[in-house]
Amino acid sequence: MQFKLIINGKTLKGEITLEAVDAAEAEKKFKQYANDNGIDGEWTYDDATKTFTVTE
């Protein structure tokens, strides 16, 4: 399945997509990506659109 991450950071904004088996795997990958890029914020997930959002 394809999942999307919307980044609303203080210095980094944008979207990325990835393939994952389920939402838990996608969340783990997205949070690792955010951590690697210094993004720390409030996370939400919309199951209907398979979209994660992180807002700093």
Score class of each variant (00 low, 15 high):
residue 53 T to V: 10
residue 4 K to F: 06
residue 21 V to T: 09
residue 33 Y to M: 09
residue 19 E to R: 03
residue 56 E to T: 06
residue 1 M to R: 06
residue 5 L to F: 05
residue 24 A to Q: 12
residue 11 T to P: 05
residue 41 G to C: 02
residue 23 A to M: 10
residue 32 Q to S: 15
residue 19 E to I: 05
residue 8 N to L: 14
residue 34 A to V: 09
residue 11 T to W: 06
residue 26 A to Q: 00
residue 27 E to I: 10
residue 39 I to W: 06
residue 2 Q to K: 10
residue 29 K to N: 05
residue 35 N to Q: 10
residue 38 G to P: 02
residue 45 Y to S: 02
residue 43 W to R: 00
residue 8 N to W: 04
residue 3 F to W: 15
residue 44 T to D: 10
residue 52 F to K: 00
residue 44 T to I: 07
residue 47 D to P: 15
residue 39 I to M: 11
residue 35 N to V: 15
residue 23 A to K: 04
residue 37 N to I: 12
residue 18 L to V: 15
residue 6 I to Y: 08
residue 18 L to M: 09
residue 38 G to E: 07
residue 39 I to N: 02
residue 21 V to S: 14
residue 31 K to D: 02
residue 3 F to R: 00
residue 40 D to C: 08
residue 37 N to R: 12
residue 13 K to P: 12
residue 7 I to K: 01
residue 39 I to L: 10
residue 6 I to H: 08
residue 16 I to L: 13
residue 32 Q to L: 14
residue 46 D to N: 07
residue 49 T to Q: 05
residue 55 T to I: 11
residue 41 G to R: 01
residue 36 D to W: 07
residue 32 Q to A: 12
residue 20 A to V: 06
residue 15 E to V: 06
residue 1 M to G: 12
residue 21 V to Y: 14
residue 23 A to Y: 15
residue 10 K to P: 03
residue 28 K to V: 15
residue 17 T to K: 07
residue 13 K to H: 13
residue 46 D to C: 06
residue 53 T to A: 14
residue 41 G to Y: 02
residue 26 A to K: 00
residue 34 A to S: 07
residue 18 L to I: 14
residue 10 K to T: 06
residue 32 Q to N: 15
residue 40 D to I: 05
residue 26 A to N: 00
residue 2 Q to M: 14
residue 32 Q to H: 05
residue 49 T to S: 13
residue 45 Y to R: 03
residue 17 T to W: 15
residue 5 L to N: 01
residue 34 A to L: 08
residue 56 E to R: 07
residue 12 L to A: 14
residue 37 N to T: 09
residue 13 K to V: 12
residue 28 K to F: 08
residue 34 A to K: 01
residue 30 F to G: 02
residue 39 I to V: 07
residue 37 N to D: 03
residue 50 K to N: 13
residue 22 D to N: 12
residue 30 F to D: 00
residue 34 A to Y: 02
residue 3 F to H: 03
residue 12 L to F: 07
residue 26 A to R: 00
residue 19 E to T: 15
residue 10 K to M: 06
residue 55 T to N: 10
residue 24 A to F: 10
residue 39 I to C: 03
residue 24 A to E: 13
residue 40 D to L: 10
residue 21 V to W: 08
residue 3 F to K: 00
residue 46 D to K: 06
residue 43 W to N: 00
residue 9 G to E: 03
residue 50 K to H: 11
residue 42 E to L: 11
residue 16 I to F: 08
residue 47 D to A: 08
residue 52 F to A: 01
residue 49 T to P: 02
residue 34 A to D: 00
residue 11 T to N: 10
residue 21 V to Q: 13
residue 25 E to P: 01
residue 26 A to D: 00
residue 27 E to S: 12
residue 3 F to D: 00
residue 26 A to Y: 00
residue 55 T to V: 10
residue 14 G to Q: 07
residue 33 Y to A: 03
residue 7 I to F: 14
residue 16 I to H: 12
residue 21 V to P: 14
residue 7 I to S: 02
residue 26 A to C: 03
residue 31 K to V: 15
residue 24 A to P: 04
residue 12 L to D: 09
residue 32 Q to R: 12
residue 17 T to D: 11
residue 37 N to W: 11
residue 35 N to E: 13
residue 26 A to S: 02
residue 19 E to P: 05
residue 15 E to S: 07
residue 27 E to Y: 15
residue 12 L to T: 08
residue 51 T to G: 02
residue 37 N to K: 11
residue 50 K to L: 14
residue 51 T to R: 03
residue 56 E to W: 09
residue 52 F to S: 01
residue 55 T to K: 07
residue 34 A to N: 02
residue 33 Y to K: 03
residue 43 W to L: 04
residue 45 Y to A: 01
residue 19 E to M: 12
residue 3 F to L: 02
residue 33 Y to D: 02
residue 13 K to E: 07
residue 34 A to C: 03
residue 29 K to H: 13
residue 19 E to Y: 10
residue 25 E to F: 10
residue 25 E to S: 11
residue 6 I to Q: 12
residue 38 G to W: 13
residue 28 K to S: 11
residue 46 D to L: 05
residue 32 Q to V: 12
residue 38 G to A: 13
residue 13 K to I: 09
residue 50 K to E: 03
residue 51 T to F: 04
residue 4 K to Q: 08
residue 44 T to H: 15
residue 36 D to C: 08
residue 39 I to G: 01
residue 31 K to R: 07
residue 25 E to Y: 06
residue 27 E to G: 05
residue 31 K to E: 05
residue 42 E to W: 09
residue 32 Q to Y: 06
residue 39 I to P: 01
residue 8 N to F: 12
residue 30 F to N: 00
residue 8 N to H: 10
residue 19 E to K: 06
residue 30 F to A: 04
residue 44 T to P: 00
residue 49 T to G: 11
residue 41 G to P: 01
residue 3 F to G: 00
residue 37 N to G: 05
residue 9 G to Q: 08
residue 48 A to L: 15
residue 49 T to A: 07
residue 52 F to V: 01
residue 7 I to Q: 02
residue 8 N to E: 09
residue 43 W to D: 00
residue 41 G to F: 03
residue 44 T to N: 12
residue 15 E to C: 07
residue 38 G to I: 05
residue 31 K to A: 05
residue 56 E to P: 11
residue 15 E to D: 11
residue 30 F to Y: 03
residue 20 A to H: 03
residue 21 V to G: 08
residue 26 A to H: 00
residue 43 W to F: 09
residue 36 D to P: 02
residue 52 F to H: 02
residue 11 T to C: 07
residue 11 T to F: 05
residue 46 D to M: 08
residue 2 Q to P: 07
residue 40 D to R: 13
residue 36 D to R: 06
residue 10 K to C: 06
residue 8 N to G: 06
residue 19 E to F: 09
residue 52 F to I: 02
residue 19 E to S: 09
residue 28 K to N: 09
residue 15 E to Q: 10
residue 37 N to Y: 12
residue 12 L to M: 12
residue 25 E to K: 05
residue 28 K to E: 08
residue 1 M to F: 12
residue 33 Y to N: 02
residue 17 T to E: 10
residue 22 D to C: 03
residue 52 F to M: 02
residue 1 M to W: 07
residue 25 E to V: 12
residue 3 F to N: 00
residue 54 V to Q: 01
residue 40 D to H: 14
residue 32 Q to K: 15
residue 51 T to E: 11
residue 34 A to I: 06
residue 5 L to E: 00
residue 14 G to D: 05
residue 52 F to Y: 13
residue 31 K to Q: 05
residue 38 G to S: 09
residue 29 K to G: 13
residue 51 T to D: 02
residue 45 Y to I: 02
residue 9 G to P: 06
residue 37 N to P: 01
residue 2 Q to G: 09
residue 40 D to V: 09
residue 30 F to R: 00
residue 31 K to H: 10
residue 17 T to Q: 07
residue 25 E to N: 09
residue 5 L to T: 01
residue 54 V to N: 01
